[in-house]
Design a binder for these strands. Structure first.
Length: 590
RNA sequence: GGCCCCGUAGCUCAGGGGAUAGAGCGGCCGCCUCCUAAGCGGCAGGUCGAUGGUUCGAAUCCAUCCGGGGUCACCA
């Protein structure tokens, strides 16, 4: 994979060496060593899978062999000779089918440690995004109840993705779309009204279809505090609108509180309801109509098993079949009112109009059927200027005592996000939710994550950071100056053992990892990287048990400072990575 | 039936054109007079669901099929 876009002052050793390789290839083209005009986009400089293959590898010779009409070996040899002239390069060997394996001078790697200390947690930041404006819409849970575990995963993934993109140089907006315009908020209002009756000493009638959860009791009480018994004798038509607003506001306050407990802070809350009556829906549809994508028609009966009460209706439809959808989609119900899709069209038009370059939506997997029509809308309305990526979050299976915890909102037995946070803490919730790709179902085993055992990757990474801090603490007690300024001035040539170099190389991969994860919208890669870095560090730590020269605290001050500099650099990157994931770095674990 | 996701070690999962496919758990064998053993090292364990195709090169891309899950009219 190639990484063409580079920041100007960001430190990224892999990118630097790739630039060197490209420059030398261009020089070869200019001097006739290679045919001119070759496309170098496919040239990559990557960490080899096997450390025995050197420290960096480039596929240049293999990629260019065919277009250049040359043997890979000939290209690799010519390139190797030129690369060796660079002071950073210590070795360049042709291997395998044409890989050019590079070794760098130890000083290049040692310098990387200094860079990490000088840049601190900014190390790994990228200019990849070039300030492009990205809107990440996530959570968007209906304002009808508290957040539960299924929402939590979307919240964590969205928030971490937003942080990741920020780290990679995008201008990010976190946004929540409040579905407060549909029938479900009427149901909420009726449910709250029953709790209001209850608060006034009457027995509530929670009919089938209403929300039975206890969380509405305080809403009923608050309604009583505000209205006394004034609403009791009114017909629904008179109290519904008012109770609806009141209850949705309280639900949103609760959701914001839940999000805050998880460490999620939105920049923008957009309201579905606020789109009605403003002409925005009509304007967006008019624009689509101008593109020939809106028409009046009758849908075919659904394929497969047809619902018994299906009947043909004439509706206003969006021609999503023109974008690969299997059916055109209604924007208006047969009674003329809008479907949920209509305000969503307006909402996405609104996002386009606000000037975002990229849109990302985090949806539950049950919305998979919604993806094509929404992408179609954004493509059409923005004339393909704005991209829309929809990440579907698969289910979270909660396990407790080896049993699956069944959740039913209707039965009121769902596990809330708050329950989860109270039991295991926000850090564990966040990290565990990020240890899986978004499109794979996730088992959240209560027992394992509360055990704080090594089954739990959160503690493994935290422990590495705690060990770093332990070293710093001991060093300070011994009277050493371990400020970053002092450590970055350390004589880093004392670092050189293979176990140490392995850790440094892993640190060198961080900027590259950030860019890969950001490009793919894959925050889970950060979690896995941190685990690997922690693993390398734990390994180095234990080498100190058998080989005194690999301990971080040495009898010699200069040596100690060099070793501590490495440990501190590990801590810096762990903290930066955990920062992206929204997990608190723990300084001490006992 | 259409669409989406998944299928990699006994289990849970990374890797998603590149070299001998990795980790954790579980199993077996080792490592604390010494910076935190919540840790580390080693061994055993694989037709990367199947078959074709593209490619110098496929676990990775394409096609078809087989399993598993999700979803599918005026709900949101």
């Amino acid at each position: 994979m190639a990484f063409g876009i580079r920041g100007c002052d960001q430190m990224n050793l892999f990118a630097d060496i790739r630039e060197l390789v490209v420059a030398e290839l261009e020089a070869l083209m200019a001097s006739g060593g290679l045919p001119s005009g070759l496309d170098l986009a496919g040239v990559a400089v990557e960490p080899p899978r096997d450390a025995g293959h050197g420290e960096m590898a480039t596929n240049a010779a293999m990629v260019l062999a065919k277009p250049a009409g040359m043997q890979p070996r000939a290209i690799a040899d010519a390139l190797a000779a030129r690369l060796m002239a660079d002071p950073r390069v210590a070795g360049a060997d042709v291997a395998g089918p044409g890989f050019l394996n590079l070794r760098l001078q130890p000083s290049a790697w040692q310098g990387l440690v200094r860079d990490v200390l000088e840049q601190g947690e900014a190390y790994g930041r990228s200019a990849l995004g070039q300030g492009r404006r990205v809107n990440v819409e996530f959570v968007s849970a209906n304002p009808t109840g508290p957040m539960h575990v299924a929402h939590a995963r979307g919240a964590v993934v969205g928030d971490a993705l937003a942080s990741l993109l920020d780290f990679a140089g995008y201008a990010v907006t976190r946004e929540y779309y409040i579905n407060d315009g549909g029938g479900q908020v009427d149901v909420l209002a009726r449910s709250a009204y029953e709790r209001y009756r209850e608060a006034n000493g009457l027995s509530p009638e929670i009919a089938e279809g209403l929300y039975p959860g206890d969380y509405l009791i305080p809403v009923g009480e608050a309604l009583k505090a505000m209205h006394g018994d004034r609403l009791l004798d009114m017909p629904e038509s008179e109290w519904l609108a008012e109770v609806r607003v009141f209850a949705t506001d309280m639900m949103m306050a609760m959701i914001r509180h839940d999000l805050a407990a998880l460490g999620v802070e939105m920049d923008v809350y957009s309201s579905e309801k606020a789109l009605y009556g403003t002409g925005q829906i009509e304007a967006a549809l008019e624009r689509l109509k101008g593109l020939g994508l809106i028409y009046t028609g009758v849908l075919e009966p659904p394929k497969g098993k047809a619902p018994e009460d299906w009947e043909a209706r004439e509706q206003t439809l969006f021609r999503s079949t023109a974008f690969g959808d299997d059916q055109d989609r209604p924007v208006q119900k047969s009674d003329g009112s809008w479907t949920y899709f209509a305000p969503d069209i307006a909402y996405h038009w609104n996002k386009v109009e606000r000037g975002f370059d990229e849109l990302i939506n985090i949806f539950g997997a049950d919305h998979s059927g919604y993806v094509k029509r929404l992408k179609a809308v954004v493509a059409a309305l923005s004339e393909n200027r704005v991209s829309l990526d929809i990440k579907l979050i698969q289910l979270v299976k909660l396990l407790k005592g080896g049993q699956i915890v069944k959740m039913s909102k209707r039965a009121g037995t769902f596990v809330t996000l708050r329950d989860l946070i109270d039991e295991v803490g926000p850090d564990v919730v966040r990290f565990v939710m990020l240890t899986r790709k978004n499109d794979v179902a996730l088992d959240f085993d209560f027992d394992k994550v509360t055990e704080q055992s090594k089954d739990n990757p959160v503690f493994y990474v935290q422990y590495a950071n705690a060990r770093v801090n332990s070293i710093l603490r001991k060093a300070r007690e011994a009277g050493l100056d371990v400020s970053d300024a002092s450590l970055s001035a350390a004589h880093l040539a004392h670092l050189g053992h293979e176990a140490e170099m392995g850790v440094i190389r892993k640190l060198g991969e961080w900027p590259r990892l950030v860019e890969i994860a950001a490009k793919g919208h894959e925050p889970h890669r950060v979690a896995f990287y941190l685990y690997e870095l922690a693993s390398d560090f734990h390994g180095l730590w234990n080498r100190g048990n058998e080989d005194d020269s690999l301990r971080f605290l040495q009898g010699d001050t200069a040596k100690s400072q060099a070793k501590i500099a490495l440990a501190r650099a590990v801590g810096v990157v762990i903290c930066a990575g955990l920062g992206i994931l929204g997990v608190t770095p723990v300084e001490e674990m006992r």
